[in-house]
């Protein structure tokens, strides 16, 4: 479903000036553009601007003073750690899934692709809940984990697992159509000429899919660092221990520390903007290579 975000698999063309008969009448153009711009300004630009406006409401000094917060720094470190585990895990999975789907024929292939998409259809809250049912105190492995003093729920492993679940399809969904479109002729040629499987992957496949790979990693990382609902259910909200940056934003907000909440939120908004810029750059680079 979130493959809707991906613009890598189509060529984006600039609008061309059309002959008069195929041009929309002026009143229609003006109306549609006004409606579209007002809608985007109200629903996209306004929230984005307000994050920074609220963060700087009491001045630059108060903004930077709010970063003097040990729990906030811990939350940031946990968010980075979570993404540093979840993204590579899903990267390896994405490459493996795309390799078997694109290079081989086997029964049940389309079912496999649908199953890979499942996490997109699951509410973030339920994504957290299912791990509570498996590893929580009353879950399947709860008593066993308790006996061996292993904590997953209300601890870092649960946060990582829930994050892996919600970002599960991102990289696979980029690579599968890309590798399917590229076919297997080049790999076939490399193998026939005596290259080993690993050499073929590294020297033939990887250069072909690098932009798709990078694109998937960008989208996956943005979601991994920003996830709220799933992580909220499994984290237990222990300050300075199991709070990620989005959860820390919630805690500060609920304690009426608005400058602190929006200052932390401004970091996440900068991450979102960086994601959008990188995404556009990769789309441009990919189109130049394959256009």
């Amino acid at each position: 479903m979130a493959s809707a975000v991906s613009k890598l698999h189509r060529t984006v063309t600039d609008p061309v000036v059309r002959p008069r008969a195929l041009r929309d009448p002026l009143w229609l153009r003006v109306t549609l553009m006004t409606v579209a711009f007002l809608f985007l300004a109200g629903f996209l630009l306004l929230p984005l601007v307000s994050v920074f406006a609220e963060a700087f409401r009491r001045g630059i000094g108060a903004y930077f003073a709010s970063f003097n917060d040990a729990d906030g720094w811990h939350a940031l470190r946990l968010t980075l750690l979570t993404a540093a585990i979840a993204v590579p895990a899903n990267l390896v999975f994405g490459v493996a899934a795309a390799w078997c789907v694109a290079k081989f024929e086997f029964p049940g292939k389309s079912l496999l692709i649908t199953l890979i998409d499942l996490p997109f259809a699951v509410s973030p809250v339920i994504s957290g809940l299912i791990y509570v049912l498996v590893f929580g105190a009353h879950g399947w492995f709860g008593p066993w984990l308790d006996a061996h003093d292993i904590k997953i729920i209300f601890a870092v492993p649960g946060i990582v697992l829930a994050t892996i679940f919600v970002t599960f399809p991102f990289i696979a969904r980029e690579l599968i159509p890309l590798m399917q479109a590229q076919g297997k002729d080049e790999e076939y040629a490399a193998i026939t000429l005596g290259a080993s499987g690993w050499q073929t992957f590294r020297r033939v496949t990887l250069p072909n899919i690098k932009w798709g790979l990078f694109y998937g990693v960008i989208l996956c990382n943005a979601r991994a660092m920003g996830e709220f609902g799933a992580v909220s259910v499994v984290s237990g909200h222990i300050r300075g221990v199991t709070n990620t940056l989005p959860l820390h934003v919630e805690i500060l907000y609920n304690e009426y520390q608005f400058v602190g909440a929006f200052a932390a939120a401004s970091l996440l908004a900068l991450l979102a903007l960086a994601t959008l810029v990188l995404k556009s750059v990769v789309e441009w680079a990919h189109a130049r290579h394959h256009g």
Binding site: V5, S50, E54, E227, E250, F258, L268, T275, L276, S280
Partner: peptide, 24 residues
């Protein structure tokens, strides 16, 4: 730029969107 901005709801963490909309 407008085209890239359309993806903002995917990129912006939901908690950030939540407090921003509430503030507005």
């Amino acid at each position: 730029i407008v085209d890239a901005l359309v993806d903002l709801p995917f990129a912006l963490p939901t908690a950030v969107a939540g407090i921003a909309l509430t503030a507005i």
